[in-house]
Design a protein around this nucleic acid. Sequence first.
DNA 1: GCCCCTCAGTACGGCAGCGTATGGATACGG
DNA 2: CCGTATCCATACGCTGCCGTACTGAGGGGC
Lengths: 192, 192
Amino acid sequence: MAYSPRMVNDSPRLSAQDWTRAALKAIADGGLAAVGVEPLARTLGVTKGSFYAHFRNRDELITAALADWWRNHGEAGLAEYAAIADPGQRLRELLTAVVRSVQPLAPSVHLSLLGDRNDPRVKEAVSRVNQARLNLLTNTYRELGLPPDQAVNRARVAYAAILGLLHLAQTEADSPNPDALADAAAAIFLPS
Amino acid sequence: MAYSPRMVNDSPRLSAQDWTRAALKAIADGGLAAVGVEPLARTLGVTKGSFYAHFRNRDELITAALADWWRNHGEAGLAEYAAIADPGQRLRELLTAVVRSVQPLAPSVHLSLLGDRNDPRVKEAVSRVNQARLNLLTNTYRELGLPPDQAVNRARVAYAAILGLLHLAQTEADSPNPDALADAAAAIFLPS
DNA sequence: GCCCCTCAGTACGGCAGCGTATGGATACGG
DNA sequence: CCGTATCCATACGCTGCCGTACTGAGGGGC
C-alpha cells in the first residue's frame, strides 16, 4: 500500500472519525455517561471548539459512534466467519474465537452498553448486532441438519453462552484455562 | 406547600433501607450514573436534606446498595435452590427459573452493573454473586456424577448461558417462547 | 498568490448535581 | 410532658459540563 501522510494521527488536526473512535473508547470503559465533549477533548489534546466543528451536539456524536459500532460488528464484522463454507468448522471457529477473547476491545463496548440499554439508540444498536450474530448461528445450525425451530433455540442458547462467557471473562480477573473451556463449549454446542 | 405523595410505604418518614432500595432501582435502569442524590430524593418525594441524615455522601449510598445486593443475591438468595435435595431437579429449577425470568428486577441490576464493571466496588460485588452461583452449579454437576474439572467447566458454560439469556431478554423486546427455550436449555445442560 | 473552508482557541451563559449549614418538625423514651 | 435523636426543608456555594458566539490559524483548490 502507498503511505499517505494522512494515514494515521500524526497530523495535528482531527477528523470526525477521531472523535467517534474516542467516544467508543470512552463507552468501552464507562458507558454513555463517559462520553463527554470536554473530557474527550482533553484526552484528544484539544478544546471543545474543535468538536463543534464536526458535530452539532453531544447526541450526534453518540449516535454516530453507535452507528459506527454496529456497522463494524454486525454483518460486516461477521463476514470473516460467514465465509467459512463448512458449517461445522464455522461453528467451532465462532465458539473458540470468542471463548479465547480474540477481540478484547469490541466486547467491552457491548458490555458497557448494557448499562445504558434503556436508551433507545443503544437498544437499537445492540439489537442489530445480536440479530446479525443470531442469524449466522441459526443458519449454521440449520446447515448442520437441525430443524428450523430447534436451530433457532439452539443458536439462542449458544449465543447466550458466548455472551455470558464474555461477562465472566470481564468481571473476573483469572482466566480459567481457555482451551479447556473452549473444549467444554464445543462439546456442548456442537451437535454430536 | 402541598403534601407530597408518599410512595407505597405509607410511613411518612424514610429509612436508610428505603434509600438503598431506591438506589438499586435506579441502578437497574441506568447504572451507577443514575444514582444521584437529588434525583432519588425527587422520586422518593423528599429533598436531599433527608438523604444526608442517613449517609455521609453519595459514595456511601452506592457501597451500601451494592453490599445489600450481593448479600441478597449471593448465597442467601440461592438458599431456596440449594435446599433442593435432588441435584437433577435442582438444576432444572435453576435453569427454568432464570429462563422464565422469575425475578425481573434482580437481573436488571446485574446487567446494569456490567456497564460499570470498572468500578472496583462493582467488580467485587458482581464477582461475589457470580462465585456463589458458580459454586452451587459446580456442586450440582458434581453430585450428578461429573468429574470435578468437567463439572467446573460445565457449570461455567451453563451459568454463562443463563447470563446471556438474560442479556438477550433485556435487550430484545420480543419474548421468544420461554417454554421452548427452557426445554432447549434443559436439553443442553442436563446431562442425559 | 488569494480566497475559502476546516479545524481549533477563548469566553460566556446556563444548568444540574454534590455537599454544607441551619433550623423546623416529628417520634419516642423517660 | 419534656428532651433528645431522627428525619426533613430551605438556602447557599461550588464544580463540571453543555452549547453558543466569535475569532484566529493554516492548508488546498482556483
